[in-house]
Design a protein around this nucleic acid. Structure first.
Lengths: 201, 201
DNA sequence: GGTTTAAGTTAGTGACCACTCACTCACTTA
DNA sequence: TAAGTGAGTGAGTGGTCACTAACTTAAACC
């Protein structure tokens, strides 16, 4: 049997937990399944994470780092606000494509149970993303690219809902369409609006 | 001990399951919890539903009836398409407010497990709602209230995402804002669009 | 090359899960 | 009023869960 360093195993276990959270659901995932995927016995997992809760905490921290770095890189992509907005949405969709467990984790009861530890962590991620989006939108209004009088906070919630919605539909459909392309087209639609510009009610 | 007719008990059990699915999550809900909420012993539940799966099927059918009748009534509310669109969104939000388990049910793994029985049922509900929305949007385009060239199918997906998104945020926030009001304002924002009409990129 | 360290193992623990069985007793009806 | 029906019960069944105790052995270090 090939032994590995604790650091290596820890990341292996966290990554296996993430992919399995997508496959079987965060609430239905057992430590036994994680152990089998990694290729070790079930108690070996508890050598690296003394409880399942701490394993989920580590998963949360892992996802959080990926989210933060994704947003940071996207914000640096373009000088103008609307370009940054598109980059943020595209980057977030790409991250969900590579870590499809993210939406399921956000809404799972695994997080809400147990003293609200992870729930607050993920709620914090959502708030961070919302404030980043709202900031970019406010810049867009200032520079005249976006409607004056636009409610930036609400618009940011619309964009978050858009990403979550298309990710959920992608997941339920069995991933039979291109998540990033579809999401980008929905963003364009929202930016243009539905009403006829001349004859608004 | 107060005995009730089987019909009465069945609906009591289904309703308890729905409220508990919201409180503890569909995947974490046990038959014992349902029995306690109803006020009977755990085996008594199995007299009315011979397996937990059949109980979930009954819950699905119950929710389905409520959804269909909600859409039907909303469509009859207004003669013009945009009015019907607003009525549909408002009615859907009101239904979620009275049956908050609906979004959780849609995305729970309880449905996806077990031969995809309930999963298909709920996917069918979503498709039904999408086609109703797309139909109303197409009418709006024809009558000139909505942008010509509007992609009705994608716009319908945007509206579904909007409802789901605000419902999820409402749930995660501990229901500290008015779901219906907030949802209606997001709808208005999407209908107007984000871009500056004169100077679109 | 022997000792130490720590990543692994097997074999459990009690709690909870969906579900069953044998039985009871309230109510309807002949 | 006796018989039959069916909504209820208490006491289990086997299976799975998170987690633990005691032991083993591969690798790191001197």
């Amino acid at each position: 049997m090939a032994r590995k360093s604790a650091d290596q195993r820890r990341t292996e276990i966290v990554e296996a937990t993430l992919t399995l959270a997508d496959e079987v659901g965060p609430d239905r995932l057992s430590v036994e399944q994680v152990a089998q995927r990694v290729g070790i016995s079930q108690p070996a997992v508890f050598r690296h994470f003394s409880s399942k809760r701490l394993l989920w905490d580590a998963v949360g921290a892992f996802v959080g780092k990926r989210l933060e770095s994704t947003w940071e890189r996207a914000l640096a992509e373009s000088p103008d606000p609307v370009g940054r907005l598109r980059a943020l949405v595209r980057a977030q969709l790409r991250l969900i494509r590579t870590l499809p467990a993210i939406p399921a984790l956000l809404f799972s009861r695994e997080l809400q149970a147990g003293d609200q530890g992870l729930r607050r962590t993920f709620l914090g991620f959502m708030r961070r993303f919302h404030s980043v989006l709202a900031g970019v939108l406010a810049e867009g209004v200032q520079q005249g690219q976006l409607r004056t009088g636009l409610d930036e906070a609400r618009a940011a919630y619309v964009i978050i809902a858009l990403i979550q919605g298309v990710a959920m539909r992608w997941s339920l459909s069995g991933r039979e369409f291109d998540l990033v392309q579809e999401g980008e087209q929905l963003l364009e639609l929202v930016m243009q609006g539905l009403l006829n510009c001349e004859e608004s009610s």
